[in-house]
Design a protein around this nucleic acid. Sequence first.
DNA 1: TCTGCTTGCACTTTTGAAATGT
DNA 2: AACATTTCAAAAGTGCAAGCAG
Length: 418
Amino acid sequence: MYHPRELYPSLGTGYRLGPPQSGADSSFPTALAEGYRYPDLDTPKLDCYLSGIETAPRTLAAPAPLPLLPPTLGAEPALPAAEALRSLPGVSLSLENQELWKEFSAVGTEMIITKAGRRMFPACRVSVTGLDPEARYLFLLDVVPVDGARYRWQGRRWEPSGKAEPRLPDRVYIHPDSPATGAHWMRQPVSFHRVKLTNSTLDPHGHLILHSMHKYQPRIHLVRAAQLCSQHWGGVASFRFPETTFISVTAYQNPRITQLKIAANPFAKGFRENGRNSQPILFVSPDTPGGPCDSTLGGDIRESDAEQAPAPREAAPAPAPPCSGPSAEAYLLHPAAFHGAPGHLPTRNPSFQEAPDSGRPAPYAAAFLELQPGAGSSGYPAAPPAASFAPHFLQGSPFPLPYPGPGGYLDVGSKPMY
DNA sequence: TCTGCTTGCACTTTTGAAATGT
DNA sequence: AACATTTCAAAAGTGCAAGCAG
């Protein structure tokens, strides 16, 4: 996977997309920061632009703060259907490896986080329908805290053991195929198995940074990028699947989870039958990294995938022409330009070669957005002033609709372009 | 002392370049 | 010479266990 840092090492490790850190922007009302939250889908990291594209006007008068979700004790409650926040009518997402996730969820999913970064297993693998085959979309994944508690393994189950650590810099993983056409995304399942989790707050690789012993929830966002060099993003659909909730750990606590991982993860095959792990194999999952869940394009696809679900070349996005204006595409090509980085930076590192399969520049195949947590102690983002939500169509305005001023300058208004 | 984190280990899978064949 | 297939070594991904740190 690639990271903008590889293109612009001089910029450091991340590109701030959100508001300044608490205290850096004293003009922002803390009360609002505490008061806003989507009722059905907490979207702290992406609130800043999801907000501008809601399909219907809504009052955001920043009422009393919504409470954090209560910590869940012991067995998880019955899992509701995937929740979604949509401004892309008709778009739906389904979790391909839902059964595997449910196996883990029933036990209490744990994800190892390491300083160097550890992949998620199971990985999020989804199928999407309802996209405009001709339009281009970005697939994003982020991970957000489920509640405000820190957890401890009590021998038989996880229990809250205090207040959560302060929110870490939020990062968003962009699927390496992004942007691609709707036809491309719908052709085969989309996998995020290359996402890595780390507990290193100074992580230089762009991995998603989490606290250990905290409960998290992956979310998947589908963003319509109108066209290459477009001035607007055309809408967002965000999804989360309750069964993908997990607790981050540096070492597995629940031995049943260990068994599930060993049984299901091919990389752990060495622990199955050679005596290092004497317990019986529970099952062998089809959710292997090399399955059809892999990326649908370019270097992210493996031979086995090509056999199962070949990705025709015509599905590959065309090489991106130089972009000058603010756009989703431009962000991927030149993320630093939207975050206060020097504007004279090159738009492309000539040392990178074209991705052989996709026909587009490899270095832009994937990137991370790093967003800052908002003001306030809740860990949720700085909420937008209500007035910022009023205009449904914002054209040519800086990116952070709720956060005018220094920071990002990407227009994500929802003015229809189609 | 306890809990959580880091590191090195052995093992496996994946990947891509080089070698070989058609 | 060009392309396809096979081989193989390096890289990367696993969980385990010992040791370290607060």
